[in-house]
């Protein structure tokens, strides 16, 4: 059960090796979290992540979960909810793709869309149903500023995050009053392996900063969280730029 500060005792991470998700999880273990489910594609990385969290004192389980296999979501995630209440779900899986290649290889582009959007729609709905049945819980969705306005440089990823973001907002409205809280987190450039090797964007931040923002958002029961917070203003300005100007921005 969550406490007065929205801190969960049990946590399900979708995308169990995500660096951002693991930073959030470490933070929550330092607070109230005792049980963690890491859902992801089986890999040594997933087991290693589980081991590291165990060393922090949590009881950690792993579950096979592939965003690209929506047909399996009900089963894979149903198993977790059958074991007991899940106080928080962190939807963290995602892939950046390779914009240049994906433009030439539509099938690769579709995989980005299917992971980030379709996979999240499926897993998000499965989790939402289970959370609603237990009458409480937070669904925290890692969206991205990239979805706020798609840019020339990564519009395939950006459009998939735009879809995810819109989906999560709508889901939050659908679940309003059901005891389930949906929080959309929009980080800017976060230094993780996903962005390794890319030129750093302004206001670049860290997984730990995202963890801090998530903790604060849980306490406030926020619906939208920007990391860093200044991006809220920056993005609202960018959003209103005329197309011609936006197109020529070096972002």
């Amino acid at each position: 059960m969550k406490d007065a500060f929205g801190l969960p005792q049990s946590l399900l991470v979708l995308g169990g090796t995500s660096e951002i998700a693991l930073a959030v999880t470490r933070r929550l273990i330092a607070r109230r979290t005792r049980t963690v489910w890491l859902a992801g594609r089986p890999s040594p990385g997933l087991d290693e992540a589980a081991g590291q969290l165990r060393a922090l004192g949590a009881e950690v389980h792993t579950v096979d979960f592939d965003a690209l296999d929506p047909a399996g979501h009900e089963d894979a995630l149903g198993k977790v909810f059958a074991e007991g209440d899940v106080d928080m779900v962190l939807l963290a899986f995602g892939t950046l793709g390779d914009q240049a290649r994906d433009e030439r290889d539509p099938r690769a582009a579709v995989r980005v869309a299917q992971t980030n959007y379709t996979g999240a729609v499926s897993a998000g709905l499965v989790c939402a149903g289970a959370l609603q049945a237990q009458g409480h819980g937070s669904l925290v969705v890692l969206s991205s500023v990239a979805g706020e306005r798609a840019r020339r440089a990564n519009f395939i990823y950006g459009s998939s995050k735009a879809g995810l973001d819109a989906f999560a907002q709508g889901l939050g409205d659908a679940l309003y009053g059901t005891g389930v809280h949906v929080m959309v987190v929009r980080p800017g450039f976060v230094r993780t392996r996903m962005t390794a090797g890319l030129p750093e964007a302004p206001l670049a931040t860290t997984p730990e900063a995202v963890a801090t923002a998530v903790e604060l958002g849980l306490r406030r029961r926020s619906e939208t969280v920007w990391v860093p917070g200044a991006l809220r203003v920056v993005m609202s300005a960018l959003r209103h730029l005329p197309r011609g100007v936006f197109r020529r921005l070096p972002v």
Partner: peptide, 17 residues
């Protein structure tokens, strides 16, 4: 009916019948 419930401190709402 199903409603969202809290205690007097108005933290941690949850839904119940």
């Amino acid at each position: 009916d199903t409603v969202s419930v809290t205690g007097w401190g108005r933290t941690a709402p949850s839904a119940a019948r």
